[in-house]
Amino acid sequence: MKNFIFVIALISFNVFSLCSNDRILVAKELVTLDDLYQDANAVYIKGNKFHSIGSKEDLIKKFPNIPVDHLYKDSVIVPGFIEHHVTSTASCNNNEF
């Protein structure tokens, strides 16, 4: 019985991990715009926030159970663009100053 619970728990954990976005994202270059993290090339995303930033090796060592995502290993990652002034209805050619 104990084993059964353990297996179920393990499966649940893995399913949970697959469903969550938690991962260490690796980039060719990571432009953080944060002076504390100038030479990083990886970021650990936990839930909807940044958890840690550093070199790929350091993050993997620190968080060995977190999946590593290499999808953008040849790309440059910058902070998400913020367009703080659009006129959304005018953009579909209605009007708004």
Binding site: T32, N48, K49, F50, S75, I77, V78, P79, I82
Partner: peptide, 21 residues
């Protein structure tokens, strides 16, 4: 909460082919 890749901020990123800097 936004604007840089810093611990604790929302995980918003833009993935580019080249480094604009």
């Amino acid at each position: 909460d936004y604007g840089s890749i810093s611990p604790g901020k929302y995980a918003n990123l833009t993935v580019l082919s080249d480094n604009p800097l």
